[in-house]
């Protein structure tokens, strides 16, 4: 936290975490789904497929 740049970065991270309700790391957002914690690649791939099929853009 020695430079403005880093402080700015941390503020952005904090704001994002609050927006999505992240409680820790790792955390991901895929389409309309928030994932917290460790997941396998297979689950992530399936999730991406589902989100694509459901056309999440319309939700936002």
């Amino acid at each position: 936290m020695q430079s403005e740049e880093i402080v700015g970065e941390l503020m952005v991270s904090k704001a994002l975490a609050r927006t999505f309700g992240f409680i820790g790391t790792p955390a991901m957002v895929v389409g309309g789904t928030v994932i917290q914690g460790e997941i396998t690649e297979g689950v992530l791939r399936r999730l991406v497929e589902i989100e694509r099929e459901e056309g999440w853009r319309r939700i936002c």
């Binding site: 820790g24 790391t25 790792p26 917290q36 914690g37 460790e38």
Partner: peptide
């Protein structure tokens, strides 16, 4: 403190 299981939560 940092607590971790399959997710790390400060």
């Amino acid at each position: 403190l940092l607590a971790c299981s399959d997710i790390c939560v400060p």
